[in-house]
Design a protein around this nucleic acid. Structure first.
Lengths: 343, 343
DNA sequence: CTTAGCACTCGAACCTATAGAGTGCTAACA
DNA sequence: TGTTAGCACTCTATAGGTTCGAGTGCTAAG
């Protein structure tokens, strides 16, 4: 068990290291007014903390830095959230200042502001497009042999894809097809669209449309969404500002991993409610073993969710980021739900 | 005037430095079979080349590296284009392998392949969306108070934006409006859209639609396109592979500049036909003074153009990149024009 | 005109000494 | 008994010195 004093010293050590990025020594600490002890006393306590695995030395006679376990304890027990400075609150609220009507636009702005406020990298995951439902389908012919298929969802999101149409097709057939599609598929989620397309409309096409087979096949291919996940990054270059990252190779593999959208689920695991902090090797990806990631979910209405992640060095300003994310996730949920309801 | 031998030695020196990234010495060069001279002879020639400003020394007793003037001369007079290896040609052609119908998709893939083939950063500028013409306008109401405006262009590009609609508006009015818009504005370029909207449709709205003013105002705001230029990047992280860039601050300001789309016109000036090479400080942006940029334009049909840029170190493999860009720009023009014609 | 020879220069790598920050331990102190 | 002063010790970072090697410029011989 840790004594009061040890706790205090652990906290101050971590705080100091977070701020200075330099190993912390007992002399330095003894100068702080929170710690009215002599360097020797602090040394003893730090030695204990090291024995227990909360602190580490970079070499025999250096000051100490928090270990992974040290950060973990700090985050779990020593984080005294402090209200955000007004300046920050104002800036967070500026996200919603202009009356933006688009979910995606709001999310993009959130990412930007967040990366500016933290100086870390912000990754925002929008709500899963596949849960959106079809509001309107349309097909706009572009010329003799191609057309663009457009799907508008209830959220105002628009998916579109150009696809080839069989040559010599009667334009009125396309019109018929669009009507049937809208009649049958309005309200279907994008996820089910592909399946329902066959179930509900194929037989009707067969009855009403000449040469339905070719048209149907190419259209179906167009609406299989190899949609990019809607991930928004901001402040990718902020990593380069951190003194913790000096090794170009590490930076590269880190940036590589973050760009690659297939790694997103590893960085911000879905389905976790509330705020999550992963420190160093607690991250699944080895390229991120020197990083900490803080994630939080937000909600849009009752069903849809998105998530926010901040990626920074292990030595990140947890206190500040946690408060920022807490606030933003609340605001974002409120605002986006309001937007959704309006529709 | 330069002698034959000096030319040869300049060329080999630049070639060697491009390959090795190390200052080139006379001993090293004398071992090459292209240069059957003694080190002393080569030394004399190199001393001359230095006096004339084509080569530089990093310090008194070091080997030499090409100066800006040296690169310029090399590029202007000593570049002997060499046919592309089959491997590269195959990979370039793989861009058009799948029958992709979308211009944007083709451009994206080109950027990717190009950055892979060169190991530099590729920036591709798509054709100016503002020159595309309206194929179909539509408005899809999302609920009581908002709707999404959709513009499909002749190229198959889709612009969309959510905008608020006045509460209590008659849905049939929207339908009327869409009909009028399509009747009057089909074929208008996106650039002129805003102007023509007022000229051609406002008076008609006045006659046919109740409360046209509010609807018109918000709709007009929606179709003012603060469209992102369609710029596609690939291989942004390739800079980190170059041994020339070790200073994290320089890397950061370079990456910063490249991300910011407002700098794009500075990086790849429009309106230049043919292939352009800018070396070091020939670039307008000071963040790019250690880079070379090679740009080339491509055409889509008779009117539209886009451009391709490769950003790498001054010590870039000009020969290879020039050939690659020449080939790709031709292929791209052909393929995209074909795509356009089909519509 | 070319080249061999040679003295010279400079950076990179390595060693050494020193200063300074920090530690652990012991003994004195309240 | 817990706290602190004192002290020897450790290790890094820095600066200075030496050596090695690659490269140069110049001169004189071929």
């Amino acid at each position: 068990m840790l004594t009061e004093r040890q706790l205090l010293i652990l906290k101050v050590t971590v705080d100091d290291y977070i701020e200075s990025a330099q190993p912390v020594g007992s002399n330095q600490l003894s100068k702080k007014s929170e710690l009215p002890f002599s360097p020797a006393t602090i040394r003893n306590a730090m030695a204990d903390l090291e024995k227990m695995g909360f602190l580490e030395k970079t070499h025999t006679s250096s000051g100490r830095i928090p270990s992974q376990k040290g950060y973990r304890y700090y985050v779990d027990h020593l984080l005294t959230p402090r209200p955000l400075p007004k300046q920050d609150i104002l800036q967070l609220q500026s996200i919603f200042d202009d009356k933006i009507a688009e979910t995606e636009e709001v999310i993009k702005r959130s990412a930007m502001i967040l990366s500016e406020l933290t100086n870390y990298t912000a990754i925002l995951l929008g709500p899963d497009v596949r849960k959106h439902t079809v509001k309107r389908l349309s097909i706009v012919p572009l010329g003799a042999d191609s057309a663009v298929a457009i799907i508008v969802t209830d959220s105002g999101h628009v998916e579109n894809r150009v696809f080839p149409i069989p040559p010599g097709l009667d334009p009125s057939d396309i019109e018929k097809m669009v009507n049937i599609l809208n009649e049958r598929l309005a309200g279907v989620s994008l996820n089910d669209l592909h399946m329902r397309l066959e179930q509900e409309t194929l037989s009707i096409f067969r009855q009403h449309i000449n040469r339905y087979a070719e048209l149907f096949t190419t259209f179906r291919q167009a609406v299989v969404l190899p949609h990019e996940d809607n991930v928004y990054y901001a402040g990718k270059l902020n990593i380069l500002k951190q003194p913790d990252f000096h090794d170009i190779h590490k930076i590269r593999s880190l940036m590589d991993v973050m760009e690659e959208s297939k790694h997103i689920p590893m960085i911000m695991p879905a389905g976790s409610l509330g705020l999550q902090i992963r420190i160093g090797s607690e991250n699944t990806l080895s390229a991120m073993e020197d990083c900490s990631v803080i994630t939080v979910a937000y909600a849009i209405g009752e069903e849809q969710t998105g998530s926010i992640a901040i990626v920074g060095p292990k030595r990140m300003d947890y206190k500040r980021v946690v408060t920022l994310l807490d606030t933003l996730s609340g605001d974002l949920s409120k605002e986006l739900t309001r937007l959704l309801r309006g529709k």
